[in-house]
Structures are given as structure tokens and as C-alpha cells.
Amino acid sequence: MKRWITILILAGILLSEPMSTSGRAASWSGVDETVIEKFAEKAGRPAREPFINTDQGDLLLFVFLLAGAVGGFAAGYWFRVLFPTKQRTKEKKEAHHGSTSSP
């Protein structure tokens, strides 16, 4: 219960703050823009376009979704290998036991 309360408070802070300030212009840019590129431009070394520029219209959204799907699948696949469910563990043990006990 105590853990759930902590989680809920944390979730509330995380959710409510961005929502309450979503109307602000020029907010929520990454620190690469607000820090790195700002200092680089001041020093006369502005960033240039990537070699493969996917940052065009919705193309970036597409590649991120694709990357998310592949990454999510990879992470889920290895997760299931490393953390099998109780049922799968039981089945494996039974199968192993059956194969070793048969003549």
C-alpha cells in the first residue's frame, strides 16, 4: 500500500506538470537544443544536417515508431527468455523430468 501511494504521487507529479504547462510556447525542447547547440552556435560550430536526414515531416515519427516496435520486440523477447512465467518454468521442469526418467 505504502509503495502504491509513493508510485501514485510520483505519477501524479509526472503527469500533471507537463499537462498544466503544455500551452507554453517553446517549452520542452531537448537539452541538445537548449544547451549543446546553443553553445556550439556561439562558438561558431553549428550543428549540420545528419548524413541520413530522417528529420523531415512525419518521417521521423515513422522511423521512431518502427524503431520502437523493433526495440520493444527485442526487449520483450529477451525478457521472456530470462524471466519465464511460473507456468513455463513448470512445463520445462516437467518436460525435463519426463525425458530423464524415460528408459
Binding site: 525542447s29 537544443e33 552556435e41 553549428p46 523531415q56 521521423l60 515519427l61 523493433v70 527485442a74
Partner: peptide
Amino acid sequence: MIDDRIITRTTVTPAKAGVQGNRAPLSRLS
């Protein structure tokens, strides 16, 4: 050019891909 890049930067989803390709050694795991 930089400004264009910043302007065209739009919402992105948080999910990304990480690929570490190794076959799942399920039999070995057992």
C-alpha cells in the same frame, strides 16, 4: 539550416529500437 531543423522537429514517440541479435538459447537456458 539549423533553425529549419529545429522547427521541423515534431513530436516523437518515446519508443525506440535496440537490436542485439543473438539467438535465444532456450535449450541452453533449460
